[in-house]
Design a protein around this nucleic acid. Structure first.
Lengths: 150, 150
DNA sequence: AGTGAAAGGGCGTAGCG
DNA sequence: CGCTACGCCCTTTCACT
């Protein structure tokens, strides 16, 4: 049980992680298979949900979202129902939401335009979810979202 | 100064964030432009570095990397040079590396197969970078890497 | 499950408004 | 900077192995 994934599929996933817009023709060449065989395998990987989708990676500075931060959430009312993701989903500045073990309950990764935008977002988060927040500002990002080790 | 980005470009980026493999023909239809005009704009966005690339989003469980964690780094030797990203880059389990303000110096997002894999990775990180680590294990991921608010 | 061929459509460059 | 035009390449399917 290595992960129920064949070497060929892993090679395909490696390529698509590095270049999500790679053509089937190139893909076929790189993994040493015919075009139609690769096509079939990619469709199966998509249907099984191994490939959940494709996304462009954008430069935060250039799209006017130059400030990244991590926000840890601690519930203020221990009796409240745990529906925080639902309560926070509408805030589009929150790009990722993780439920975690440890002192805090959730970790959010957010992107905003400025300190003022961060202040505003924190206010909205506290209001929507009734939580205490702890914020860690990102100064720079040496690397991000690298391709996983397949 | 909204961000030096035209509404049309923002529309294109929104589409490519949601579906990175979207054809130029579809893209043109959705943003209300001709195919070649869209093509030209996308090329410019790529050249300017606004679009840094395209990647497939993979299901961690199904690729044998079902355990995600955040690892905070604190230097043990205050006099050591700050070249931690260089020292850690070769560890492919580390998908993201952020330099942060606050008590710790760096936050890493990592993906491993199991608790044993996490233990092994922590050992390698301490060895390579001479740092103290604080690890927060992810229990579940309500949402991740959503398209930014353009 | 992989191959090869064939039909259809998208890609990408060119030239012009 | 956007549109039309056109040739090439890629995508997608099908019958065969």
């Amino acid at each position: 049980m290595t992960s129920g994934l064949e070497p060929t599929d892993r090679a395909i996933l490696r390529e698509l992680s590095a270049d999500g817009r790679c053509s089937f023709t190139d893909l076929a060449e790189r993994v040493g298979l015919s075009v139609s065989a690769v096509h079939q395998r990619v469709r199966r990987l998509e249907q099984r949900g191994v490939v959940q989708g494709y996304a462009a990676r954008l430069d935060g500075d250039q799209i006017g979202l130059g400030l990244t931060a991590f926000i840890s959430l601690t519930p203020t009312d221990p009796a409240a129902p745990d529906d925080y993701p639902q309560r926070l989903r509408h805030l589009s500045q929150i790009e990722s939401c993780y439920s975690v073990a440890g002192e805090e309950s959730y970790i959010l990764r957010v992107r905003v335009a400025s300190p003022a935008g961060l202040e505003d977002l924190l206010r909205q988060i506290r209001e929507a979810a009734k939580v205490a927040t702890r914020t860690t500002v990102v100064l720079s990002t040496p690397f991000e979202n690298r391709a996983p080790a397949l």
